[in-house]
Amino acid sequence: MKAFYSFLAVIVLILVAIIGGSIANLHFFFGIIIPYVAFVLFVGGFIYRIIKWGRSPVPYRIPTTCGQQKSLPWIKQAKIENPTSALGVIVRMASEVLLFRSLFRNTKTELREGENGPQLAYGSAKWLWLGSLAFHWSFLIIVIRHLRFFLEPIPVALQMVDSVDSMLQIGLPQIYITDLLFLAAITFLFLRRVCVPRIKYISLPADYFPLLLIFGIAVSGILMRYFDKVDLISVKELALGIATLHPVLPSDIGAIFYVHLFLICCLFVYFPTSKLMHMGGIFMSPTRNMISNNRMVRHINPWNHAVEVHSYAEYEDEFREKMKKAGIPVEKE
């Protein structure tokens, strides 16, 4: 049911976009105004969320590591899992951001029939890791590829990405490897939520909606490239117009393009309000991005209230004469 509502929401968005794409008077609104608004909301929302998170107090190191802490010299330290240097932290964060290290350690739990009744069994579960990795990397490469619409002249590096991605040279226009990977990965990520009962139980509309929205974006893009073809030159004129801040509106782009564009704009607007903010949030994981030097360095709680202290030395300075008169021993004459 939750998946159904999300599906319905995406369908409504697609219908809105089809209406916008098929009525020529709305093209200016859907082709130029909404993308600008979406971009501004995305950037603004993203900054707002990050600043808001940045204001949360992080008083102490919270090491939840699975590596040996730096200890006696003859005990080998896990320098990346339990880093005591900035370099170690950078490597740990990079492996987290680029390779999804934590997800790689994902395990599954099962109750099995053993000899003496049910037994709890743990095993490795790499499918989610593999699916996420394929999804995120394909998405990144697809986004980078799309820069060809926004840049003129197109940098050589971008052309190389393009030619590597289409190196299979299947069909015309050539099929992109990332397109296939992306569709496969997102289908897997969706089916996982629908088919595994435990995951289905904890899935919310906020989990299904972005998946379906991104699926819609991918499908509309693939339709536009391979089936219901749009005029690429007009698309680039529109995109470049947006990027040069002198928007022009080519008249004859197909309605399917507006579906693609509108869904992307929806994703942009939705992004800062949703779980998709893990894109920025992962860099702020307190258990991952701090040097594990809890005991090596003295950490003082940054918002400790300033307590006025009166040390014994100061006390003695203040009352020395009186103490001497009363015969109380003093440390300093």
Binding site: L147, E152, K236, L240, T244, L245
Partner: peptide, 13 residues
């Protein structure tokens, strides 16, 4: 993209 295209005309092919 905005900086890259700064000051360039949107000249098509």
């Amino acid at each position: 993209p905005f900086f890259y295209n700064l000051g360039k005309a949107n000249a098509g092919p």
